[in-house]
């Protein structure tokens, strides 16, 4: 695999100088999206890390028109922008993007997102999935993986952390029958870039969910962000899948590695390696990965 297939360039969309943490997967993923999208776009952003680190008034990292309203309404605001551009006859020339974290997308903003899909707005929605409420200090979201310890699903004497698996929003999005849904990872850069490009070439609602490792939230050395994302994909816990009009059309094949290799470097899973009960939970996580591999036919 070529590691120098693409190079970052300064884009008009998302500029340097923002305040993201070192090693932030989300900042890289947004830069990728904006590089592909080009200057003829308008972006709506949910409350969250991205909004906070990119727009402390009077500064802004955005070179395209950008609006933040609230936590749960980015999809509805984007729908309103789309309706206005349609009324003004500009929708052929201007693309509408929306960004939200996993909490904004899977949890509090789920209704507005579903409404946007169902009504068929020409909006590309990008969910930056770092698997917890990172902006407020690593609280559990509907996207937090099984057995992860967060500040509101902490491991303890009577708990091994989060007791439910991730909400499968990509499948729910696909069930709306929208033209394009994809999962990607900032660590599989060319694949994510291709998916963003494809999403932006299609009319109607699009949903791309990108796995974006978070050094402070997951608890690993920040230089390992790309490695963390790659391990998640390679073990089968983050399957890279595309759906078109509700049907799976393409998956990225893997040579599976054991889930321990992904879990071990992360503080949020550290407790699993300290007890016999933890081993049982790791076995359950392996089952989740195996189920993904089976469901989507991920084996090379």
């Amino acid at each position: 695999m070529s590691k120098t297939e693409f190079t970052y360039e300064l884009t008009q969309g998302f500029l340097p100088g923002h305040r993201a943490c070192a090693g932030c997967g989300q900042a890289s993923a947004v830069r990728l999206v904006m590089e592909v999208a080009g200057p003829q776009v308008v972006a709506a952003n949910a409350t969250g890390c991205l909004e906070v680190f990119s727009t402390p008034y009077p500064e802004s990292a955005w070179g395209v028109p950008w609006v933040h309203s609230l936590f749960e309404n980015a999809a509805a605001v984007a729908a309103g922008i789309e309706a206005a551009l349609k009324h003004q006859g500009k929708l052929d020339d201007i693309g509408v993007l929306a960004f939200g974290g996993d909490g904004a997308t899977l949890d509090i903003g789920f209704g507005p997102l579903s409404g946007m899909f169902e009504r068929g707005h020409d909006v590309a929605y990008f969910c930056m999935d770092n698997e917890a409420y990172m902006n407020t200090g690593v609280q559990r979201s509907g996207s937090t993986p099984f057995a992860a310890s967060t500040t509101t699903s902490p491991a303890g004497r009577e708990s091994f952390g989060e007791d439910r698996p991730k909400k499968d929003l990509p499948a729910i999005a696909a069930a709306h029958g929208i033209p394009y849904v994809a999962t990607g990872s900032i660590s599989v850069f060319a694949d994510l870039r291709r998916k963003v490009k494809k999403a932006l070439s299609i009319r109607g609602p699009k949903y791309v969910q990108a796995h974006v490792p978070c050094p402070p939230g997951w608890g690993y050395d920040e230089k390992l962000s790309i490695e963390m994302g790659r391990l998640a994909v390679d073990c089968g816990l983050y399957p890279l899948v595309e759906w078109e009009n509700g049907e799976v059309t393409r998956v990225r094949k893997i040579k599976p590695i054991p889930v321990e290799e992904y879990l071990k470097p992360q503080r949020r899973f550290r407790h699993l390696f300290r007890s016999e009960d933890g081993k049982a939970q790791i076995a359950k996580i392996q089952e989740l990965a195996d189920a993904n591999i089976e469901k989507y036919g991920l084996l090379e």
Partner: peptide
């Protein structure tokens, strides 16, 4: 382009 809805 303008940025709207920045935090203060």
């Amino acid at each position: 382009p303008y940025t709207m809805g920045a935090f203060a």
